[in-house]
Design a binder for these strands. Structure first.
Lengths: 107, 107
DNA sequence: ATAACATGAAACCATAAGGTTTTATGTTGT
DNA sequence: ACAACATAAAACCTTATGGTTTCATGTTAT
């Protein structure tokens, strides 16, 4: 399989539970860094790092608004990962079809 | 969002490019460890470790056959990740629908 | 029986990752 | 103007990760 889009930074971003939680949070609406940090036990700089990684993966986009940075979910990037995964559905289905054929033939 | 199934080990397994390549390879058919290792530049023990992580995520299942360990792709686990991602499609669609409504209202 | 084989397991190493604290910078409300 | 605010940036620490080499264990073919 050829990884057309840069899928690596996407999966990398998705690998951390905190980042996935941030994604969940941003699904409900765009938020500034401090807002997000307030919802977690870790420090603001730690959240900022996570946000940077999410941005690298294209999962969020940032709008600088005065002294705030509004982080907005970009679901298109989730599709990149989803597409990669769904690619294998075909193989699986084929496999099942072949198996079914074998079973049918035995009758 | 509540992560019903243990999605963490799945995303963890998917985060590494070598492991994703192994998944691609196994999509074409089950293979023993040595067979897989032969296709990569890294050592057999390194591959074995990757396989262990894939197994932890439920992405592969192993059938011990004599001195060989046959690694078989288990696409169900891919669905765990896919489901998590697809959960957000709803939000995105809603968002678009609302936006569309606003646009329509302006006419 | 025994040599070649397929693999697991352990010890080890370098770098990446996730976190912290501290310091600096631009922004906003009064 | 200036204090409070929102954040970035740097330095640092600990643990996880991906890799290696070496050694041990069970399996198979002759």
């Amino acid at each position: 399989m050829i990884e057309s889009a840069p899928v690596q930074p996407v999966f990398r971003a998705l690998a951390d539970p905190t980042r996935r939680e941030i994604i969940s949070m941003l699904a409900a609406g765009a938020r500034p860094v401090g807002d997000i940090a307030a919802a977690f036990d870790i420090t603001r700089p730690a959240i900022a790092k996570h946000l940077r990684i999410l941005e690298d993966g294209g999962l969020i986009s940032v709008e600088v608004k005065g002294r705030e940075r509004i982080n907005r979910l970009n679901p298109q990037a989730l599709k990149t990962a989803s597409d990669w995964l769904n690619y294998f559905d075909g193989f699986w289905d084929e496999r099942l079809a072949k198996l079914k054929t074998v079973v049918e033939d035995k009758k």
